[in-house]
Amino acid sequence: MFNDFSFQGEGFIKIDPRTKMIIFILCSIAALRESRTLFQGLLFFFTFALLINGKQFIFAIKMLILYGVMIGIDLLVMMFCLPEALMILLMGIRVFRMFLPVMMAFAIIIKTTRVSEFLAAFDKMHVPEEITIPFSVMFRFFPTIGEEWDNIQNAMKFRGFALTFKNIITRPAFVYECSIVPLLSDTVLIADELSAASLCRGLGANTKRTSLVEVRMGVFDYMLIGFAIWLNIMSYTAY
């Protein structure tokens, strides 16, 4: 599950990280306002196309199937009359459907952007170092924490107190302490070493950082943003 938060590969057409963030924000605003099938569908296919552009085929197709199933359930329920009890389920499905494009837009940010691209984009947005450094450390650390967690779970299996359903029910405090203490102490130790190594590479120097990776907004970026804005305006004016 931790690999969901890491860079997976570059897309066909490169999109500026800033564009991705703007699209994400616009999508979340649109999702809050709009739930009619036509615009929702447009929003979905917009983010779907972006996922395909980002070569996230498996994830995109999973989302497509999920969306199709949810539409299908909706249609089925509409065809037959609604029993009261099913309504809450339907409500849940519809709300989830509204959020699907936003989650996909988020996945585009996370999965198709390199940490160095993030840094370069943040630099252009004049985001202070206090955010950019922790931000890049966060993405670097997700897989590391995943490894640590796996190792701790393995060690707990050997010792006889694995994080199993039975143990969580019968002695929650104990297994909780056993998982969290090594996790915290070990990551702090790793972080200490990482700090030392980074400082030795001149991180935090008072000179302005340069970046080998260039980010530039192209025509394509403006088109995407324009489309997302149009979707937003439509969702407001269509009332």
């Binding site: 940490v115 160095s116 990482l194 001149g202 302005k208 950082r209 080998l212």
Partner: peptide
């Protein structure tokens, strides 16, 4: 420990990391 001395996730960024920090010309 090679595991703990990397700041970046990809190798190229890591190789140029020190230079970028010094603000060296691209």
């Amino acid at each position: 420990n090679p595991r703990t001395q990397f700041f970046n996730v990809d190798t190229t960024s890591e190789i140029t990391f020190a230079c970028e920090n010094q603000g060296m010309d691209i």
